[in-house]
Structure formats: structure tokens, C-alpha cells
Simulated assay, not measured.
Amino acid sequence: MSDELTALVEEATKKSGLVWVNGQALWHAWVDGAMVVVGGPGEQPLPGLRDGGAAEVTVRSKDKGGRLVSWPARAGLLEPGGEPWRVAVAELKGKRLNSPDGEAITDRWARECTVFRLVPDGPPGEHPGAMPDGSGAATPPPSAAVTRRPVPAGLPRLLARRGRR
């Protein structure tokens, strides 16, 4: 991966408060060249992450909110109490909002949760200059609830009156 794309992945992921991993929105932290996430009881679900497994990370633009870069990752489970786990948890703890157990959160994470480190694993599939033509949005299913009806005949006059006041 080029230095330019490496920098894009790192900076975009650091700045975005929310990323999508395998289609699931997650909060995260960036630590030592990788993204870390925590999940389990009382925390966010981790969509199909497993030790040594592959994942697809999609990062939005901080400015516009649209998809900026998608990169492949290799997930690694961090063992509770180890040095990499402590460093990751220290960063994640600062990002966790409204924790029910305050400072004791790391003890609960060690007992009940899993912390994964997602390392970039190849060049980004999508980035500026290499984005798909479509929006990526799913087509909504057909439903009678979304059919359009003609504008009521009196509405234009009513709106025109409001504009004069």
C-alpha cells in the first residue's frame, strides 16, 4: 500500500468517531497503527469478528459524513491484562461515553468483554479516485406506505398566503 493510502486510512479512521465494520456501526480508537474496538455485554456488538479473521472497515468523512475509504483488516483478539490490551483499553476508556461503571469499566471489560485489534491488511478497496458509481444504499422494499399522491388542489394557494404574511 502506498504511503499516501496508508496515511489516508490512518487519519480518516483516527478522526472519525464512528466506523462500519462488516456493515455494523462501531465506536473505536486508533492505537499504534491499528484500530481497536471493544464489545460484549453492556457494550457494542462485534459483527462476526474472530481472532485471525478478515473484516471490512468503512470510514466516513468527518466533514461531509459520506463514505471516504474502505479498507480490509485482519482482526486479532487481545488477551486481557497483557500490555497491548492495557494500551488499547486506556484509549478506548477515554472514548467510551456514559459508562455505567465509571473507572471500574476496565475490570468489567477484562471479565466479560472482548477487545479486538484490526490491522490494515492490504490496499483500500474504496478511496478518493476509486469509488463505485452507485451509492451503496439498499433499494427499499415496495410498500403502499411510500406511494405518492397528487398535491391537494388548495395547497399552492395556502402556501402563497403564508408567504405574504
Rank of each mutant, 00 (worst) to 15 (best):
D3W: 08
A7V: 00
E10N: 01
E10T: 11
T13R: 03
S16I: 00
S16H: 00
G17S: 13
G17F: 08
N22T: 09
Q24W: 06
Q24V: 05
W30R: 11
V31C: 08
G33R: 13
G33T: 11
A34E: 04
M35H: 11
G40L: 06
G40Q: 01
P41R: 09
G42V: 06
E43P: 06
Q44K: 01
P45L: 05
L46A: 10
L46Q: 04
L49F: 15
L49Q: 05
A54Y: 11
S61T: 11
G65P: 03
R67M: 14
S70G: 01
P72D: 08
A73K: 07
E79I: 12
P80G: 00
G81F: 05
G81K: 08
P84D: 01
W85E: 03
R86Y: 08
R86F: 05
A88Q: 04
A88E: 00
A88C: 01
V89M: 07
E91C: 03
K93E: 12
K95L: 08
L97Q: 14
N98R: 11
D101T: 09
E103C: 01
A104D: 04
R108N: 02
R108H: 03
R111D: 04
T114L: 09
V115S: 00
F116W: 05
V119Q: 10
V119P: 02
P120V: 07
D121Q: 07
G122W: 09
G122F: 09
G125C: 04
E126N: 03
H127E: 05
G129S: 15
G129W: 15
M131H: 02
P132R: 15
D133V: 05
G134P: 01
G134R: 06
S135Q: 09
A138I: 14
T139E: 15
P142H: 14
P142S: 14
T147A: 14
P152K: 07
R157T: 11
R157A: 15
R157F: 07
L159W: 05
L159M: 01
R162H: 05
